[in-house]
Design a protein around this nucleic acid. Sequence first.
DNA 1: GTAAAATGTAAGTAAGTGCTAACATTTAGA
DNA 2: TCTAAATGTTAGCACTTACTTACATTTTAC
Lengths: 209, 209
Amino acid sequence: MTKDTKEKILDAGLSLFSRKGYIGATTKEIARKAGVAELTLFRHFSSKERLFEEAIKRRSFLPTLKGLLPELRGLTYTDALTEIAYRYLERLSERRELIKIMHSEIHLYPAKVREMQQKFVGEIVGTLASYFKGLQEKKMLTEFDPELGARAFLSMFYSYFTSQEFMSEKKQRFSDKDEVVAAFVKIFVSGTAITRQANETGGSERHEH
Amino acid sequence: MTKDTKEKILDAGLSLFSRKGYIGATTKEIARKAGVAELTLFRHFSSKERLFEEAIKRRSFLPTLKGLLPELRGLTYTDALTEIAYRYLERLSERRELIKIMHSEIHLYPAKVREMQQKFVGEIVGTLASYFKGLQEKKMLTEFDPELGARAFLSMFYSYFTSQEFMSEKKQRFSDKDEVVAAFVKIFVSGTAITRQANETGGSERHEH
DNA sequence: GTAAAATGTAAGTAAGTGCTAACATTTAGA
DNA sequence: TCTAAATGTTAGCACTTACTTACATTTTAC
């Protein structure tokens, strides 16, 4: 049952680190949450810092969107971007605890946390950029920088995610997920696709590639 | 010289809170940085929490982009958005310390910090949204939700700002500010303006309204 | 069943925390 | 110049922190 204990501690650690930050989460509380003596925690991890490292490392091997690319072949540009947006938001939700830590401790743990962040973002950006590149070569998209385009696209949803998740800014208009996704995708599609009719009144889903 | 002391403490507090977080910043260190005895700190602020509140409150009366609107009249859509983007990035840079606190303590101080965040974002979004609305009424923009459009636009730059400022992700391509602004604006303009020629090869600055 | 590994209990260390008390010193305004 | 307000100094309190020591108990593996 060695592994179980270690895992329980890692789980409790991740949960508390993300709720209270690295400094705010105490080893005593982590141990209690894990249902374990505080000493046991130190028998598994030589220090609080090591526990922190392992806790975030464990969640950092992020399945990216790479596997998604083939599935996009049969879809229109709008549908593909919509799909990507939803998947991306899903991923972010799954990793919300990690992301919370990154936000709160980013300037205390520059090296490690930043490195992970970059790897995560970099992979997703790369995937999306290569998708754009493919369509550009087929002359289906305008000539914009694929990586910047990817970042612009993902930025919109990342900000949406953080405002929903962390600021719980769930009021008013910014709340309906489907509406937001549709609006952002529409703007981006009109801005990047090669298509001549971009503006019927209320024309919502008319873009093909 | 009463006010000077209090101000020095507030400055030191803001600076250290943003660098080390609320928990990580100690009253002793704040006092030392302010060049003041720790006791003096407590003579001016009944508690660390009160100091924190006053420190962030002091920087929270944010000049918004409201005054910018008239200046935009004479500009093309692209130039106007570019101007807004630069101003917005400037504002964010000015407030970087506050924003850091918001990021790091957002889940520990939900009420107060969140409230400020919402007020700040809300005002800027409102300003930009009303700008969009005006152009839509003149049939110069497509019919998208102005507020969602504003959020989409600002999101791109906010994410860019945070990645530059906090993650110091200053490597590679994502670093040239002018290039990023131009790319994001171009995508957004093509996505929202009513204009028929959206894609000459390398056609960068051809959009008028 | 027994040895060994894993965990628990209890007590404690050294350091740091926010905050206070008592008293001395400086500064400012009349 | 004299007085009162503002600040400094020193010591300390009550508490919490990460982490340790010594020893008892449970669980696991063979």
